[in-house]
Design a protein around this nucleic acid. Sequence first.
DNA 1: CGACGGGTTGACTGGATTCAAGCCACGTGG
DNA 2: CCACGTGGCTTGAATCCAGTCAACCCGTCG
Lengths: 250, 250
Amino acid sequence: MTNQEKNCRARLHLVDSHRQCQHCQAEKLCLSFGLDQSIGAEMRDLIQERGPFQAGDTIYRQSDPFRSIYSIQSGCVKAETVTVDGRASVVGFFHPGDLAGLDGIGSKTYPTDLIALETTWICEIPYKELLDLCGHSPKLQSRFIERMGMTIQQHEQDWKVLRSDPAEIRVMRFLYQLHERNRRNGSTSPRVKLPMAKQDLASYLSLTPESLSRVLTRMQTDGYILKESQRVLVLQKSLEDELGLPVSRS
Amino acid sequence: MTNQEKNCRARLHLVDSHRQCQHCQAEKLCLSFGLDQSIGAEMRDLIQERGPFQAGDTIYRQSDPFRSIYSIQSGCVKAETVTVDGRASVVGFFHPGDLAGLDGIGSKTYPTDLIALETTWICEIPYKELLDLCGHSPKLQSRFIERMGMTIQQHEQDWKVLRSDPAEIRVMRFLYQLHERNRRNGSTSPRVKLPMAKQDLASYLSLTPESLSRVLTRMQTDGYILKESQRVLVLQKSLEDELGLPVSRS
DNA sequence: CGACGGGTTGACTGGATTCAAGCCACGTGG
DNA sequence: CCACGTGGCTTGAATCCAGTCAACCCGTCG
């Protein structure tokens, strides 16, 4: 199996961890950013830089034993689970600076697959050792726990939104968040590049690919966006107004 | 305002924290269960037992400053947020042994209201002090972080389910989980008591009250349940088969 | 008593799914 | 080079599930 081989290669590809994070677009979001000298050094020893993963490569699999959490340096990954009836269902996307694998804490195994969507570098952080270090660094401890708390809150938010809002609003909100992330990273372009396939996005938004497609064309005819290419959209209007008030199309 | 007064009374009602948790139905689920002597004692000093809250009493409000997390001793509470357009939306229910308020970690304020659904006793655990203690007890630290990880995983699961499944399956799954919780607590009865109002449950399942009502009557005519009273359902068939495979009504 | 809020029921509507066909870019092999 | 197949995506028509709006029931409380 070509795919399996590729995954194997990806898994075995380890990079010297002392390369000083030169692939990292997310240094300031790193758990170890700005720690005391000694703890910071221990942290850097702990972390395993891994990559590059290519689109489709598996970082870990559902029911693999849980050992590490992963910090995204560059690229983009998706987390998905396989439901009883065999359909895959995307439960999250992770961008540079995000921590993936937190949902494995408290279980013996990961509850999702983690799969790269494009060329991706990540930091593997062994969980047990991280906990040890947290015990010796209140700063690291509180930072880590806060990240988990923010994740919980984020889930709650997303959930609340996803529930009652119509398809178009869900898509708009997703694009808006992606665009906001770009802005925070210094971009000024109205272009939004979708790192994931449309079907992944549809699954994430709990839409069928057909519905997503229809929504995007409708948004184009309504002048909200312009489909520049398969993976790139250009925002034509600020979406904030639409999203601030829920569905009021006054 | 009658309601406000009631809330005030509830807020101010403090109980001596050394009463040895005699209201607690959840000792074994407690963060401090089975800790070393000294840490356990510090933990007990830290915890503020509070109650009784009555149905409708507020434990904390959205945008109150975040200071503590709350462990449910007995009773049941809901967490809800108010959306921009003023509708309330229930994002979770908490039962004895559950930790509420975790979504406030990482923010300055709570993102939800926490409201009692019936007579409820809780333990207030100041967050800063808990972190301190975690720094001195690896056991407590890992236990706390594991609870957060389980919360994240739970959210992911619920979310995945809630998204694509039809109303009837969502309701079945909810009843099943409630019943499972009862079984784990030693109950053998097929009766399931709903601690929350139907509209809260509907909101949580992202249904309208009308749809929930229809689903429940349909489930009764199909022989799955029997509506014994407003708040009590009797399970007639095991729901596992229906939930294992998704919608196959063979 | 009458007002009220929670809950149920009914008829209708609409948005998203389903099923089916078609399009387009891509790679493969003749 | 072109025919062909494939996978991701789009488009169209029919269906269905849940939402909406309205009426009604019922227990509670002033």
